[in-house]
């Protein structure tokens, strides 16, 4: 099943399929290791509902939901 990282719930796992962001944000996501094929585990949502925290490539990354929306994911069952 495919959906964006924004729609993930805590402890859901998936693989990056593609990035729809443009320009700087896109480049930044690549630099931080969010590339097609990377495995991401959704960890938690901040107390105020945004941003979110995920684990990938062995470290913790925080990003906003608006940025997570640009990450297309294949959900792992």
């Amino acid at each position: 099943m495919e959906k964006t990282l924004k729609e993930f719930v805590p402890s859901e796992k998936g693989t990056v399929r593609g990035i729809t962001a443009e320009g700087r944000i896109r480049r930044r996501l690549f630099d931080m290791g969010v590339t097609p094929g990377a495995e991401i585990v959704m960890k938690k949502v901040a107390p105020l509902g945004d941003p979110i925290e995920v684990t990938l490539r062995g470290y913790e990354l925080s990003l906003r939901k608006s940025e997570a929306e640009c990450i297309l994911m294949e959900v792992e069952k």
Partner: peptide
């Protein structure tokens, strides 16, 4: 400004 930030251990 975007907020894509590492949360260090």
């Amino acid at each position: 400004p975007p907020f894509i930030m590492e949360l260090p251990s």
